[in-house]
Design a protein around this nucleic acid. Sequence first.
DNA 1: TGTAATTGAATTGCGCACAATATAATTATG
DNA 2: CATAATTATATTGTGCGCAATTCAATTACA
Lengths: 152, 152
Amino acid sequence: MSDLSENSEQIRLQQMLCFALYGASHAFSRAYKPLLEPLGLTYPQYLVMISLWEKDGQPVKALGEALDLDSGTLSPLLKRLEQAGLVTRTRAEKDERQVIIMLTDKGRLLQRDAAGVTTAIAAATGCTRAEVDDLRDSLATLKTMLVESGNR
Amino acid sequence: MSDLSENSEQIRLQQMLCFALYGASHAFSRAYKPLLEPLGLTYPQYLVMISLWEKDGQPVKALGEALDLDSGTLSPLLKRLEQAGLVTRTRAEKDERQVIIMLTDKGRLLQRDAAGVTTAIAAATGCTRAEVDDLRDSLATLKTMLVESGNR
DNA sequence: TGTAATTGAATTGCGCACAATATAATTATG
DNA sequence: CATAATTATATTGTGCGCAATTCAATTACA
């Protein structure tokens, strides 16, 4: 049973959970693309904006923890959002290491333009609210498991 | 009810399915990283290798369809696999536009080294076989829905 | 208090992911 | 048969995602 090319030990792409996840994740960002393009946002930028709409004035560190991204990803992304006039980046006075990200008026106003994106995506998934909730919770659990097993 | 900053219309990152997917997908590739590093493969390269272990001698186009990737992603990736001595890239005689990707002996042998990766990841997810199957099928359906709604 | 350790952000380098474009080979068509 | 349309792959440019490094600010501690 050592000839992998001719028996059931063969790994099949189509039955791998990670591959399904990989494909669904890409499908999502492709679905978002035409909706976000009019707003001038990429998908990761949109996630950052949502985090800021939830809680304005976060330091880069906090955004990184909320989105699970490091400064190597966030620093240039935030500079692009600043270039676009959506956020400001200012050093905190009480701790000059921190950079506080704050929405501009333009950034705050963009939330209204983005309202339609959510409903359009919800419709595109074709899922009921309960299905979405179940799937989301399963994925959250899966992520937790993967992260925890990595810490051992 | 138009003040989005103070009511329930507010989009919340933690309740978004796409964000859960985004996080779980990244968690997976982080979990794979230390397992694939000894093999000298990145996660997308590993997926390409699996596709080739399933079916050797595929043209770039077929690999792209199997993995849902275009030549802009695959061409440089395949060159790196060639550099690593895992595959060969040769023009098809009957249609010189096609480039056929074939495993080298080294590429075929790598399948044995990769056998442990699957079991390690399966353990890391902490999911039962049934849970994996359910989740995978839900994600496949979701992807189909997103792709189809994009074609309209 | 002075030095060491830690922390927050930015930068560099590499590898996807993907749109847009280019090029060459093949096929279709007038 | 010549030319137009299509097809397969490669290239270029932009933006993540992440490891590794750097730097300055802060905190710990000898």
